[in-house]
């Protein structure tokens, strides 16, 4: 375990754990609200912001955060106002975000060497600055969810009832969308834009099969995503495989095991 003494490896573990906390909590809400595809679209849209930040010489994570929050608010607004356009727009945003990002990266002089790492993640290249940014985003997500948890749980369960009891459903929904966007940005460093959606939903979906209460689901989801991330970092180091895909593979394996336990339990009941 000499590897633990290296700074880059410690950084990777810290960022992995930080991202797992946000992913487990927000992922649980995404899974019970059944908006995985909206989240996937937001993740891909963030690439547009990344490209623009790259072009302007800003920190890519800041660009991705701004752009994905704006996309999330747009999609959230449309999905509440017009069900007819929702599906097509989710798909369009997915691709347009990528297109914007690629054009701006193309326009930026010089070699875009770390482009690949944003698409598929490269947690072993984490810098101190990344850690601070991601920790900051993490704190925003954690505090928001802690404060508004009951409201999120209520509007996901029954929007009509909440509206009739004068709860501001649209405002909370858009707020939740913005938190999903921030979480996605936190996770880009870990697994990359293309794989984000799997790490956001797989641990939470696994947890959902194994626990009946929301608290239980969130705790297990954080646990599973932390395990997948940490185990993935170690495994990829020793196998010399790319980290993001290994993390996703472990998350998928956990889901499969959870699924087997789930059907076994059901058989015992019925």
């Amino acid at each position: 375990m000499d590897i633990l003494t290296y700074q880059f490896f410690q950084n990777a573990l810290i960022v992995g754990l930080l991202a797992s906390v946000a992913a487990g909590i927000i992922g649980s809400l995404v899974v019970i609200k059944k908006i995985s595809f909206i989240s996937g679209s937001i993740a891909h849209a963030s690439f547009g912001g990344l490209g623009i930040a790259y072009f302007l010489g800003l920190h890519p994570i800041i660009g991705a955060a701004v752009f994905s929050v704006l996309s999330a608010l747009g999609i959230g607004w449309v999905s509440k106002k017009s069900k007819t356009h929702e599906d097509a727009l989710i798909g369009a945003l997915w691709a347009v975000g990528m297109a914007v990002g690629l054009i701006f990266i193309f326009l930026t002089p010089g070699y875009a060497g770390d482009l690949f790492s944003y698409l598929f993640g490269n947690i072993l290249l984490t810098t101190q600055q990344d850690i601070l940014l991601i920790a900051g985003l993490d704190i925003i997500v954690l505090i928001s969810v802690a404060l508004f948890f009951r409201y999120f749980l209520a509007i996901i369960f029954d929007e009509d009832f909440c509206e009739v009891t004068n709860i501001r459903v649209l405002a909370y929904y858009l707020f939740l969308m913005a938190l999903i966007a921030l979480t996605v940005v936190v996770m880009i460093k870990v697994v990359g834009i293309i794989l984000v959606i799997a790490l956001l939903t797989l641990p939470a979906a696994t947890a959902r099969m194994l626990s009946k209460s929301m608290r239980g689901i969130i705790l297990l989801a954080v646990l599973f995503s932390s395990f997948a991330t940490i185990a993935g970092i170690f495994a990829s180091y020793y196998l010399n495989w790319p980290t993001g895909p290994v993390i996703i593979f472990i998350a998928a394996a956990l889901y499969f095991i959870g699924f087997l336990i789930h059907i076994r339990k059901r058989k015992l009941i019925h």
Binding site: I32, F157, C162, K212, M214, G216
Partner: peptide, 16 residues
Amino acid sequence: YPIDAFQVVLMGLLGN
């Protein structure tokens, strides 16, 4: 939905 009966009923008061 992962919620118990009591929490559902309390939801009726959340807007107040």
